[in-house]
Simulated scan of single mutants.
Amino acid sequence: MTILTADERHEIRFTLNGREVVAAASPRTSLADLLRHGLGATGTHVGCEHGVCGACTVQIDGAPARACLTLALQVEGCAVRTVEGLAPRAGRLGVLQEAFRRHHALQCGFCTAGILMSLDAFLRAAPDPTPEAVREVVGGHLCRCTGYAPIVAAALDAAASLRGAAGEGGDV
Rank of each mutant, 00 (worst) to 15 (best):
T2G: 00
T5K: 15
A6N: 13
D7C: 01
D7K: 13
R9I: 06
R9H: 14
H10S: 12
I12Y: 12
R13L: 11
L16Y: 12
R19T: 15
V21T: 04
V21C: 09
V22A: 14
A25H: 10
S26G: 15
S26N: 12
P27L: 13
P27V: 15
S30A: 13
A32N: 08
D33P: 00
L35K: 05
L39V: 06
L39T: 05
G40D: 15
G40F: 14
G40V: 07
A41C: 06
A41F: 12
A41H: 10
H45R: 14
H45W: 06
H45K: 15
H50A: 13
C53N: 04
C53S: 06
T57Q: 13
T57A: 11
Q59L: 13
Q59V: 01
D61K: 01
A63T: 09
P64C: 08
A65E: 10
A65P: 02
A67G: 02
A67V: 05
C68V: 07
L69M: 15
L69F: 02
L69V: 07
T70F: 06
A72W: 06
V75Y: 10
E76R: 12
V80T: 03
R81H: 09
R81K: 14
R81Y: 05
T82Q: 07
V83F: 08
V83R: 02
A90R: 14
R92I: 07
R92P: 00
L93P: 09
G94Q: 07
V95P: 02
E98V: 00
A99T: 00
C108A: 04
C111F: 07
C111D: 11
T112Y: 08
L116W: 08
M117E: 11
M117V: 07
D120P: 00
A121L: 12
A121C: 06
A125Q: 15
A126F: 05
A126N: 15
P127F: 09
P127H: 08
P129T: 01
P129L: 03
T130C: 05
A133T: 02
E136Q: 12
V138I: 15
G139I: 02
G139H: 10
H141Q: 07
H141G: 02
H141K: 03
C145I: 06
C145F: 09
T146D: 09
T146S: 11
G147Q: 06
G147K: 04
I151F: 10
A153V: 00
A154H: 05
D157I: 00
A158E: 10
A158K: 05
G164H: 10
G164W: 04
A166V: 01
G169V: 05
D171S: 10
D171N: 02
V172G: 15
